[in-house]
Nucleic acid binder design. Structure first.
Length: 890
RNA sequence: GGGCGGAUAGUUCAGCGGUAGAACACCUGCUUUACACGCAGGGGGUCGUAGGUUCGAACCCUGCUUCGCCCACCA
């Protein structure tokens, strides 16, 4: 072996990370290959926005995915981790528009074609930034396959999907009320509206009644939007409303205008809310729109697409919504039609992208009819073809899918997939086609014009799992890697993305897009606040990588990850794992200083308890970490590795192996101990590799393993070697650890000079002897009892032997204590406790197997009684023994 | 209105039926040649609350208090 014995005294990640990432790339280790001999494992990355910059959310789910990918590679799967970015329609267009506006240019100045060109230029410069940042994390994506949602191939997929859905009647066009962002000047989907509670006013407005014979002068209507009054076309009351029944069919005059409108009845009105009657403005309210359709009412638009009052708004024309509101209130007041104003809190929708208040806006839009697609999506989860982890998200998913509403997919933007529909200027027919048509398919007129809208970005994202693999072409990748194995993402895009991928996957691939969906929690700051730039509490992963190293960041994120709870991240936490990296580094450094060039065989006859212990623990880790990762419990996996390395390996094994490695116990022991040490690292480094790829690769090389095996990344996942697993040694070791701890306390009390403090005690205990608890209890008894300067511990039985170092700790003291008795009693207590637990479990097991009532009815009650009495007898006995122990100690 | 999740040491969180754990912080003592990014020890918790199930509950069930999230409605 070519060992590197000159490791730096502390671990510095910087150069090491860069070095290995380049080497992995060079060796093509991230490349996914179709290998019929191997099972496939695939993940498509949730594509970050091209405008994006790496934040901890990305860092978190990418760490998770990388851990899965690296583990699966080591397990022998052919792994595809497919990266890419999302063109992010509104977000990107906004960024470029903002840039332009700094130069005083608007996108309209440039025109569509020029503007789109500018966005592409921007993408060329900044679009790869997020990808470069992802690489810093150590992501093992197959970068050769990087995709972009506006790529040629993906655009083709989008177009194919659009045309097929249209032909199937699942895409339609129509004039509806949609959520409209006046600032972005585009429609947005229901999901892109974010609601927040706001202070507003409730205006009580009098609508004079035309018919003088009904006994009332006016109808009182409460509204939050007086500026839309001029767009009113009716007043609605509940059909069974006693209060207004006699007014149905009568008319009122719309304030601020000369129009007269009818009083109608509709179930949508809640007689308990407000005044019990509602003004109907079909062009500016979604509910009113529906009422309008049902009653065949006119739709009067008074606000335009920019949020400005239009020609229909009379004197308010040209005002903003806010101005018009104030003006109309003023006017109503002066006309004596405003009865009162009430302060209320109501929730107001805002544009997800820019925060502008969303307006319901009547316009021609394209929609996906989602019901039929959603039904299949629900079915796929119900019959287990898709599994949600944690399972609870299933409910959220079902709830949304079962109440799904049609999806508005048209956007009045320039950046995106242009809708492949052409309207004929002559006959009005719409031609939808995969290949740009030259004439109307209906009347063959050449006078056709393409729809100017583009598609919602999320439509292209919904195709991501298969469009990235070459669909609609019949690519071998699709056959081999689709459906993907796992989707890892946050709950915030379950509806936006996950649900839609499921629908599209089922529709176009006739199969689910992924087998498992892992939904991870939100990362918050150390105080539980959502991270945001405005709050300034953002933890920038790149800064953390600079400061602590990518491995430390990854290990932190992995270890903190837990299902069903938000993750609170702070830099001190990352620091903890930074320390861990250093610990690992130094442990390896110690090992290297003590290993010969040759690898020594482990001579089983030379193994001491601590050797057997660490070997067994190591094999256990190989087993359990794999199982934990396979069940997506990377949090427990990471934490158990941390405890194992720091606790078992460093605190105990390395310390206890020192005398042997120094040669104090002879050459045979030295060689075997070296062999054990080697085995520990050779197994543990690969276990850590998915979590902390860089440091493990560096150490792997330092140990000299890369000569024949090359990279650790290419190594196989260590199998648990039965040969190195010894029964009972873990318990025995825990006994020893407790004993040593107690002895250290004794020593401390005895003011033994530090030089003589116990570093090492060789205590042999027969296998099958007491648990750790017994010994520690009894030793604690001793330490409590003794005037420490008189303490020596007597050998309780032949199974105890003390190493030489113990006497140096305890000096010349001497004690006589009934250790054996204490031990026996304690042992008996433990035995009884275990027995009780066992009986309890038996009872519990038989009860859970059957229905409880059923069990009691059918099971022999006397058996249960007998078991129960055994338990209470045992307990009584324990009480007696405890008292006994107490007296023995005195 | 519907749904989901949390409440455990000063703080952040594990544990989820068998005698309360970690990290950080705090206190004490240590330049013991892998590591002061360290070592050894210590203090600190009636596991939100009231009931219930059980031989046994932080853990299961019910109510309550409280914090947070999602969906729907909001004229």
């Amino acid at each position: 072996m070519n060992r590197n014995r000159n490791l730096e005294k502390s671990y510095s990640p910087d150069s090491i990370e860069q070095k290995w990432y380049a080497k992995w790339l060079e060796a093509g280790l991230f490349n996914a290959e179709i290998n019929p001999e191997a099972k496939a494992f695939s993940i498509v990355i949730p594509p970050p926005n091209v405008t994006g910059s790496l934040h901890v959310g990305h860092a978190f789910d990418h760490t998770f995915q990388d851990i899965m990918c690296r583990t699966k590679r080591m397990e022998g799967y052919s792994v595809l981790w497919l990266p890419g970015t999302d063109h992010a329609g509104i977000a990107t267009q906004n960024v470029v528009e903002r840039d332009l506006s700094k130069k005083g240019i608007s996108r309209y100045d440039l025109g569509r074609e020029e503007f789109v060109k500018k966005v592409w230029e921007w993408k060329g410069v900044y679009g790869s930034r997020i990808i470069e940042q992802l690489k810093r994390l150590g992501n093992s994506c197959d970068w050769r396959r990087e995709r972009f949602t506006l790529d040629e191939g993906l655009s083709k997929a989008v177009r194919t999907v659009f045309v097929r859905l249209y032909q199937k009647g699942l895409i339609y066009r129509g004039k509806y009320i949609v959520n409209w962002c006046p600032r972005c000047a585009t429609a947005i989907s229901d999901l892109e509206v974010e609601y927040s509670e706001e202070q507003g006013s409730f205006y009580y407005v009098k609508y004079p009644i035309i018919e003088k014979d009904c006994g009332e002068e006016y109808l009182l209507v409460a509204t939050t939007r007086p500026e839309t009054i001029i767009g009113d076309v009716a007043i609605a009351v509940h059909p069974r409303s006693e209060k207004y029944k006699h007014l149905i069919g009568k008319h009122v005059k719309v304030p601020l205008t000369d129009r007269e409108i009818p009083i109608i009845q509709d179930n949508m009105v809640d007689p308990e809310f407000g005044t019990g009657c509602v003004k109907i403005t079909p062009a500016h309210d979604p509910n009113d729109f529906l009422v309008g359709l049902n009653h065949n009412l006119e739709q009067i638009q008074v606000i335009d697409s920019q949020g400005i009052m239009n020609d229909n708004a009379g004197k308010y024309k040209g005002m903003t919504i806010e101005q018009a509101r104030q003006e109309s209130v003023k006017d109503l007041e002066s006309m004596g039609l405003l009865l009162k104003t009430e302060k209320i809190t109501h929730s107001v929708g805002h544009c997800q992208r820019c925060g502008t208040t969303v307006e319901p806006y009547l316009s021609e839009q394209w929609f996906v009819k989602t019901k039929p697609l959603a039904e299949r999506g629900v079915q796929a989860v119900k019959d287990g073809r898709i599994r949600w982890v944690p399972e609870q998200w299933e409910k959220t998913y079902f709830n949304w899918m079962e109440n799904i509403r049609d999806w508005c997919i048209s956007r009045q933007l320039w950046w995106g997939h242009r809708i492949p529909a052409w309207e004929c200027r002559d006959c009005g027919h719409i031609t939808v086609a995969e290949v740009d048509p030259t004439e109307c398919e209906h009347c063959h007129s050449k006078n056709i014009i393409q729809e100017s809208d583009v598609l919602d970005t999320w439509l292209s994202s919904a195709l991501w799992p298969f469009s990235t693999m070459g669909w609609p072409e019949d690519k071998p990748e699709l056959k081999y890697f689709y459906p993907t194995s796992l989707m890892v993402t946050g709950f915030d895009i379950i509806f936006f993305w996950v649900a839609r991928m499921i629908m599209m996957g089922l529709e176009f691939m006739d199969d689910v897009p992924f087998r498992d969906v892992y939904i991870h929690s939100l990362i918050r700051d150390e105080h539980g606040k959502k991270m945001s730039k405005t709050k300034g509490n953002v933890i920038d992963p790149l800064v953390m990588i600079e400061k602590y190293g990518a491995d430390a960041l990854r290990m932190t994120l992995a270890a903190l990850s837990v299902q069903g709870r938000d993750i609170l991240l702070s830099s001190t936490r990352i620091e903890t794992y930074r320390f861990f990296m250093n610990k690992l580094w130094n442990a390896a450094r110690f090992a290297l200083m003590n290993l010969d060039d040759d690898v020594h065989e482990i001579d089983k006859s030379q193994l001491h308890l601590h050797d057997k212990f660490i070997l067994t623990r190591t094999q256990e880790m190989a087993q359990s970490v794999r199982e934990l990762i396979d069940s997506y419990d990377i949090g427990t996996a990471a934490r158990s590795l941390y405890d194992f390395v720091w606790g078992d390996v460093c605190d105990w094994y390395l310390e206890m192996s020192k005398p042997a490695l120094k040669g104090d116990e002879g050459e045979a022991r030295r060689k075997t101990t070296a062999g054990v040490l080697e085995e520990v690292f050779r197994t543990t480094l690969p276990l850590l590799h998915p979590f902390t790829p860089f440091i493990t690769e560096e150490l792997w090389a330092a140990f000299g393993y890369d000569e024949s095996e090359k990279f650790i990344m290419r190594s196989s996942w260590p199998e648990a070697k039965k040969d190195f697993m010894f029964a009972g040694v873990i318990d025995e070791m825990r006994v020893l650890q407790e004993s040593v701890r107690t002895l250290r306390n004794l020593r401390a009390e005895a003011h033994v000079p530090p030089q003589q403090w116990l570093n090492r005690a060789v205590i042999r205990v027969d296998s099958g002897t007491a648990s750790a608890k017994i010994l520690s209890d009894s030793l604690n008894q001793i330490s409590n009892l003794c005037r420490v300067h008189e303490v020596v511990i007597q050998q309780p039985s032949e199974s105890w032997t003390y190493g030489a170092s113990l006497s140096s700790v305890t000096g010349d003291c001497e004690i006589k204590l009934p250790v054996g008795d204490v031990l026996d009693v304690a042992k008996e207590i433990t035995r009884l406790e275990q027995e009780i637990a066992a009986i309890g479990k038996t009872i519990a097991a038989s009860q859970t197997r059957l229905d409880k009532a059923d069990f009691i009815a059918r099971a022999p009650a006397e058996v249960v009684e007998k078991e129960r009495s055994k338990v209470s007898e045992g307990k009584a006995q324990i009480e007696r023994l405890r008292a006994n122990l107490e007296s023995l100690s005195k």
